[in-house]
């Protein structure tokens, strides 16, 4: 099981954002993508999900070329996405947000799976509450839960701790740490918190102005590398 990104070039209109980006991630792995603001991290995830498909290059899932597949088809093949800013559907209740994810995976609406409350017990009393009324931390929990009920092979997470208060950050980090082994899925994590990345990732890749400038085992994420590629 692998997700391969091979030499992709992605554009927003005429702006060339990603330049020949390649990376690969396999089962149970957690790959952290780092980079300064505007380096192209979110664009990389959006290229994989199909929101902004690359103009050149390939994205392959278990050898299947995703080029002609739309976002929903990629999701059904096993790619789930926790977007930056959570992007909870605010008009829908917590339960309905989960149901949308279940329907999207071709499952029945039924009831909210226990898995959601196993990981996020705080969501149980909120199931009938509108997503838009939740706190940032609760929305982040819902965004992750929404992706997990799809039983993804590959989970793409875009700065899941961004904008959360420190106590909630710890809680979310603990959950993310459990996901690869417990859910048997690979995680591609865009994250700014270097300590967190060093703690949970096996490998890292650093994007700089749309190019991968450094990658390797997380042990190689030294202060010198950080100083050179990530400090502002």
């Amino acid at each position: 099981m692998s997700l391969q990104v091979s030499a992709i070039d992605t554009f927003y209109g005429t702006s060339h954002i990603l330049h020949g980006v390649s990376l690969e991630i396999g089962e149970g792995e957690l790959l952290a993508v780092l980079g300064r603001n505007g380096a192209g991290k979110t664009t990389l995830l959006r290229s994989i999900t199909g929101i902004n498909p690359p103009r050149r290059g390939l994205v392959r899932l278990d050898g299947v070329d995703l080029k002609r597949l739309k976002s929903h088809e990629r999701t059904r093949l096993g790619v789930s996405y926790v977007p930056q800013g959570r992007e909870i559907i605010p008009d829908l209740t917590v339960a309905e947000n989960i149901y949308v994810a279940l329907l999207g995976k071709g499952r029945k609406r039924g009831r909210v799976p226990d898995l959601v409350f196993d990981y996020f017990p705080a969501l149980r009393p909120l199931v009938d509450q509108k997503g838009g009324t939740l706190s940032g931390g609760q929305q982040q929990q819902l965004a992750i839960a929404r992706a997990l009920v799809q039983e993804p092979k590959f989970l793409l997470m875009d700065e899941p701790t961004e904008g959360l208060q420190p106590s909630v950050v710890e809680e979310v980090e603990l959950i993310i740490k459990r996901i690869p082994s417990e859910r048997k899925c690979a995680v591609l994590l865009v994250e700014q918190n270097l300590d967190f990345v060093r703690d949970i990732a096996q490998r890292f890749a650093i994007l700089d102005t749309g190019r991968i400038v450094r990658e390797g085992d997380v042990a190689g994420l030294t202060n010198e590398v950080v100083q050179r590629h990530l400090s502002v």
């Binding site: 999701t75 996405y81 329907l103």
Partner: peptide
Amino acid sequence: AIAGCLGI
């Protein structure tokens, strides 16, 4: 866009 990413 997000609905699409949720599989819709």
